[in-house]
């Protein structure tokens, strides 16, 4: 049976969908975002302590786009703006803000924020 052969030697993705994990495997998903996480170093425990502590945002980010650090760094090229990091941060150091405030798109005429 030809189908049987190579069952264990298959190259990734020949008969099923499979790939090696890599940054950007699914494209620049940051374009999907309509609200942006903004981290306040004055509140972030790791930033305040000046060492790699807490890192709860890193642990919870479902896209793996936060790098550990003092404080952690969010890669906006891939962050979809789900807001889980802001929800989970025990120090309330992350605020979700509308993308419009960051000059990505124009505000509707007359609207002031």
């Amino acid at each position: 049976m030809s189908e049987r052969e190579g069952g264990s030697t298959m190259e990734p993705g020949r008969r099923i969908s499979m790939s090696r994990p890599a940054v950007g495997e699914a494209g620049a998903t940051g374009q999907w975002r309509n609200s942006r996480p903004v981290m306040d170093p004055a509140l972030c425990m790791a930033a305040k302590a000046g060492k790699v502590t807490c890192q709860i945002c890193w642990a919870y980010c479902p896209d793996g786009c936060i790098t550990q650090g003092a404080g952690p760094v969010i890669d906006l090229t891939y962050c979809k703006g789900c807001g889980i990091c802001a929800e989970e941060c025990p120090a309330y150091a992350i605020e979700m803000t509308p993308e419009a405030l960051h000059g990505v798109c124009d505000l509707p005429e007359g609207e002031v924020r």
């Binding site: 990734p12 008969r15 090696r20 994990p21 890599a22 940054v23 495997e25």
Partner: peptide, 27 residues
């Protein structure tokens, strides 16, 4: 068919688009 090896991790069942395309490893 899947590769299940902590030393060589894989995405299993990732998005496949209309046309064949190279993944990040060039496969």
């Amino acid at each position: 068919l899947t590769v299940v090896d902590p030393g060589d991790p894989r995405n299993i069942g990732p998005v496949v688009l209309a046309d064949p395309r190279a993944d990040s490893s060039g496969v």
